[in-house]
């Protein structure tokens, strides 16, 4: 359940659309729910969002499964989403992905045993001029090198403690 503050945010989002068109708030609400409830969307969370918008749960499931930013199973506290499309590949994204795999001892789509890190590959994130890059939470980490990756991992470990 959302806090009162978040419920006010929900109301504010729904008010952006004409009366009766509250379903338009679905994607913004799923983002909000994912942030609030551990970085992923469980069936319960999706049902809750459906009840807030007075739509059927299936209408939420079909949307949540379509968009790649919604996680449908638990993820680590920090999700590394490394871009692997053309422009990033030209500047060595494959090496960055291999480096992270070795460093964290996980494969793509896996989470470290301590639950801290998940590695995912992503398709073009719109930072082609600053390649190679990855998304970490709300922000982009650009011009990646193995040294930068080390520093980011360290930064996350410190923050987690």
């Amino acid at each position: 359940m959302f806090s009162e503050e978040k419920l006010n945010k929900v109301k504010e989002i729904i008010a952006r659309y004409p009366a009766g068109k509250q379903k338009s708030a679905l994607i913004p609400l799923l983002h909000l729910a994912q942030e609030e409830f551990g970085g992923w969307l469980s069936a319960e969370t999706m049902d809750y969002v459906a009840s807030l918008l007075q739509i059927k749960p299936i209408e939420v499931y079909e949307v949540a499964t379509f968009y790649s930013m919604f996680n449908l199973k638990p993820v680590g506290k920090y999700v590394f989403e490394v871009c692997q499309t053309g422009p990033c590949m030209l500047l060595g994204s494959d090496n960055i992905i291999d480096y992270i795999k070795k460093k964290l001892d996980i494969g793509v789509g896996e989470t470290t045993k301590d639950g801290l890190f998940t590695l995912k590959t992503a398709e073009c994130l719109g930072a082609c001029g600053y390649a190679p890059m990855m998304q970490l939470g709300k922000h982009f980490r650009e011009h990646l090198t193995p040294e930068k990756v080390d520093a980011i991992i360290e930064e996350c470990r410190v923050k987690a403690n």
Partner: peptide, 19 residues
């Protein structure tokens, strides 16, 4: 929420309608 196709105008409209 991460879908290239939503750059196509009618897909974008669908997405904006919560679909």
């Amino acid at each position: 929420a991460g879908a290239y196709i939503c750059g196509e105008e009618t897909a974008l409209i669908e997405s904006l309608e919560g679909k």
